[in-house]
Amino acid sequence: MITVIQRVNTASVTVDRQIIGRIDRGIMALVAVEKEDAPRQADRLLERILTYRIFPDGDGRMNLSLQNIGGGLLLVPQFTLAADTDKGSRPSFTSAAPPEHGRELFAYLQQRATSIYPDVQFGRFGADMQVALVNDGPVTFTLRTHASI
């Protein structure tokens, strides 16, 4: 699985002019499922998102995690992160999971996140979403879990 995490002051997802997910200070994570991904990759990705130290401590150093600060988590499905952009001028999605597998694994990620973290919101798989955020820093990282774990 692939995610782009962004430290945000606020973030929201709108579908059909309705806000379906909104957080204040925390992490917005764009998440892509690849063909070979399974629940263990989703578990590992969630663990990394919750514990990745990207928030400043009292000295201004990135030493605190989302769990440490009790911030919000907004998980947004985005299959385009799995694009192969190495050749040509058009992306290839050969490594992205088929839609049903992606939907299933994102639903698993939603269930796991809800069961272990109190402040979590979601985008909607397969929807035309409008995503708004105020990136704090800006601080942005790409995290990846591989099928070999």
Rank of each mutant, 00 (worst) to 15 (best):
Q130G: 01
G88M: 11
L133K: 02
M129D: 12
V139W: 11
S95I: 13
A132K: 09
D37W: 07
A113M: 02
I54S: 00
A97V: 07
N135D: 02
S115K: 04
R144M: 09
R22P: 05
N135W: 00
F125Q: 08
Q111K: 12
F141I: 05
A32F: 04
Q110N: 03
Y52C: 09
V76S: 12
A83E: 07
L73E: 01
I20H: 03
A96Q: 05
T10E: 04
Y52D: 01
V76W: 05
A113T: 00
M28G: 05
I54D: 00
A11D: 04
T140P: 03
L73T: 03
Q111F: 01
P138K: 09
R17N: 11
N63H: 04
P98I: 06
I49V: 13
Y52N: 09
T114Y: 04
E100Q: 06
G60L: 14
A42N: 03
F93I: 00
G21L: 02
V31H: 03
T80H: 12
D57N: 11
A11Q: 09
F141R: 05
P56I: 04
D84T: 06
V139A: 13
L64Q: 10
D16G: 02
T114N: 02
T94P: 01
V131Q: 06
V15K: 04
R25C: 10
R144V: 08
L73P: 07
V31P: 13
L109K: 00
L75I: 06
D136I: 02
R48H: 09
I49L: 14
V134C: 00
L81K: 11
L73Q: 08
D86V: 11
P138S: 13
V120G: 00
G71R: 05
F79K: 05
V131S: 07
L64F: 01
A38K: 14
M62N: 08
Y117E: 10
